[in-house]
Design a protein around this nucleic acid. Structure first.
Length: 201
DNA sequence: TATTAGATAAAA
DNA sequence: TTTATCTAATAT
């Protein structure tokens, strides 16, 4: 399998990247253990112009700093004090765009994921949420800034999802973003059971 | 005067 | 629980 090229992440349109990411394989290798999953749900964050983004108004801090880097690196932050959220930084330097990976369909190392999540249930609850996804893939804030073309966390090119199988809707958990919360920046694969929430919109 | 460290507050 | 911001201390 081939890794996505750096140029993929530097596309000027975050929405395009978010959609293109669907169906690709996110893989992490930790302690020699390889785990992989197909991305089935993403959300786009348009940086400076997006109230839902940490980088809204070009707000730059130690934490959000990596979003200002060139596309192709990982941005991991903590939500609600306990959930790690994995984002892919896109666009060029100084444009803090990012795509949040919300759900995965396990492909490789499912047993390893199960061991990490300590939730024996082989249900869709393994990687169907941004928080549990990171646990399963062993992603933490220590991974922020890592290049997605490196050897620990990367995305492999896979069969692209057909346009008619991509659904769009509003993002979740961004009520504070006011009008921006209603933007159709969330994408998922139609009918995939691993998508985090109800698909009915 | 600048940089670093510690402490306190806020968050999502 | 992590992260941000402020205040203080120490070095420059």
């Amino acid at each position: 399998m081939q890794k996505l090229k750096p140029s993929f992440y530097r596309q000027p349109d975050v929405l395009q990247v978010a959609k293109s990411l669907l169906g690709q394989h996110l893989v992490t290798i930790v302690n020699g253990q390889r785990t992989a999953g197909m991305i089935v749900e993403t959300e786009a964050y348009a940086g400076a112009t997006d109230r839902a983004s940490h980088a809204y108004g070009n707000r730059r801090t130690k934490r959000t700093g990596v979003m200002f880097d060139e596309g192709g690196v990982a941005y991991v932050y903590l939500c609600y004090g306990i959930h790690y959220l994995f984002n892919v930084v896109t666009n060029v330097q100084d444009i803090p765009h990012a795509v949040l990976v919300r759900a995965l369909q396990p492909i490789e190392g499912i047993d390893i994921m199960l061991a990490r999540t300590r939730k024996p249930a082989l249900q869709y609850s393994l990687t169907n949420g941004p928080g549990s996804l990171c646990k399963a893939m062993h992603i933490t804030t220590a991974d922020t800034g890592l290049s997605l073309t490196g050897d620990k966390i990367f995305i492999e090119k896979a069969t692209p999802i057909k346009a008619q199988d991509i659904m769009a809707g509003t993002r979740v958990g961004v009520a504070y973003a006011q009008e921006d919360a209603r933007l159709p920046y969330r994408f998922w694969i139609k009918g995939n059971p691993w998508v985090s929430k109800g698909k009915g919109l």
